[in-house]
Amino acid sequence: MSALFNFQSLLLCILLLICTSTYVHSVLPSFLDRNKTGFLGIFWKCARIGERLSPYISLCCIFMAISIFIGN
């Protein structure tokens, strides 16, 4: 089944996108800062979400890891 049709997989993909964008922004801030609009602006917005809501994002990652571990 595709990740777009399974809600748990969709949430996992969104969390991975946020975490990856935040990491890339911490390593290469100029790359994401020059692409604030357009298609690549999605990554800049995800990096902002990851930076500002990092405790909640980390709790969601832990919750998803536990739910995947218990589910399998």
Rank of each mutant, 00 (worst) to 15 (best):
M1T: 14
S2C: 09
L4F: 12
F5Y: 09
N6H: 12
N6G: 02
F7M: 10
F7W: 09
Q8N: 07
Q8F: 08
Q8L: 04
Q8P: 00
Q8R: 13
S9P: 00
S9D: 13
L10I: 01
L11E: 08
L12M: 03
L12I: 04
L12E: 11
C13G: 05
C13P: 00
C13Y: 05
I14R: 01
L16F: 12
I18G: 03
C19E: 11
C19L: 11
C19F: 06
T20M: 10
S21M: 02
T22L: 00
Y23V: 14
Y23P: 00
Y23M: 09
V24Y: 03
V24H: 02
V24P: 02
H25L: 05
S26V: 03
S26Q: 07
S26G: 00
V27T: 14
V27Y: 04
V27N: 00
V27L: 10
V27H: 02
P29S: 02
S30T: 15
S30A: 13
S30M: 06
S30G: 06
F31V: 15
L32Y: 01
D33L: 07
D33Q: 15
R34N: 08
R34M: 12
N35G: 02
T37C: 04
T37F: 10
T37K: 14
F39T: 06
F39N: 03
L40D: 09
L40R: 07
G41W: 07
I42V: 15
I42R: 02
I42S: 05
F43L: 14
K45Q: 12
C46L: 08
A47R: 04
R48Q: 14
R48G: 02
R48T: 08
I49M: 06
G50N: 02
G50T: 01
G50W: 02
E51S: 10
E51G: 13
R52C: 01
R52M: 01
Y56K: 05
Y56H: 12
Y56Q: 14
Y56V: 07
I57M: 06
I57T: 12
I57K: 01
S58L: 11
L59A: 15
C60H: 02
C60K: 01
C61A: 15
C61L: 13
I62C: 03
I62K: 01
I62H: 00
I62E: 00
F63M: 07
M64Y: 08
M64T: 09
I66C: 14
I66Q: 05
I66K: 01
I66W: 09
I66G: 14
I66N: 07
I68P: 01
I68L: 12
F69E: 05
F69D: 03
G71W: 13
G71A: 12
G71R: 10
N72Q: 09
N72K: 07
N72L: 08
N72A: 06
